[in-house]
Simulated assay, not measured.
Amino acid sequence: MSSVKVLLTRTDPEIPLPAYARAGDAGADLVTTEDLELGPGERSVVGTGVAIALPTGYAGFVHPRSGLAARLGLGVVNAPGTVDAGYRGEIKVCLINHDPERTLRLCRGDRIAQLVIQRVEQAVFQEVTQLPESVRGTDGYGSTGGHGALSGPDGSRVAGSTTGDTEV
């Protein structure tokens, strides 16, 4: 497994450094710097206590933690959040409580998200009058099927949905 050096400062000296829970994990855990209550459907931007300097050609992506999403309904609003190589401020996470009934309580130091560092390319955009043909063409959302019960507002099958009478 390759690695990249990421310079880091703590904006809150009592908060632990981002850490990988297991060898080989893609995401390093980020924690919250504050106690927080999120009612059903509420969202809040919370600090993680760290700022980083990524090398040019890399970006950080802030992902939700799957266990918190499954057990508590905690999500990241703009998942994944993007940390650009030139950003030097504290990494903040916009959390949302997707649970329709329960208030979610977080304590300072709770793991709230994970940071994935990836190499990225910058595109050189070239305008053309027509794009080359492809097998997929202009088929968009849901075009590869797999959802037998997918239908349009009038009850007709959505283009690209599977045929059959499977109910979901």
Score class of each variant (00 low, 15 high):
I91C: 01
A19R: 14
D25N: 13
V120C: 09
N78H: 11
I52A: 08
R111M: 09
G41S: 11
P40L: 11
G81A: 09
V93D: 00
P132W: 10
I91T: 00
T33M: 07
I15L: 10
G24F: 08
Q122Y: 15
E37R: 14
G57W: 11
E121H: 15
I15V: 12
C107K: 15
G47Y: 05
E127P: 04
L36R: 02
L104C: 12
L72Y: 12
E133M: 07
R88L: 15
N78G: 04
E121F: 14
R22G: 03
L131N: 05
V50K: 00
A53Y: 10
Y58F: 15
E14Q: 12
Y20T: 02
L131Q: 03
R105T: 13
E101Q: 15
R65P: 00
A69H: 10
Q118Y: 07
G41Y: 07
K92G: 07
P64W: 02
T129E: 15
D29W: 07
I112M: 08
E127S: 08
D110M: 14
Q118G: 05
L36I: 02
A70T: 10
A113M: 08
F125H: 09
T48D: 05
N97C: 11
E14R: 14
A21I: 03
V76C: 01
Q130K: 11
T48C: 05
V128A: 06
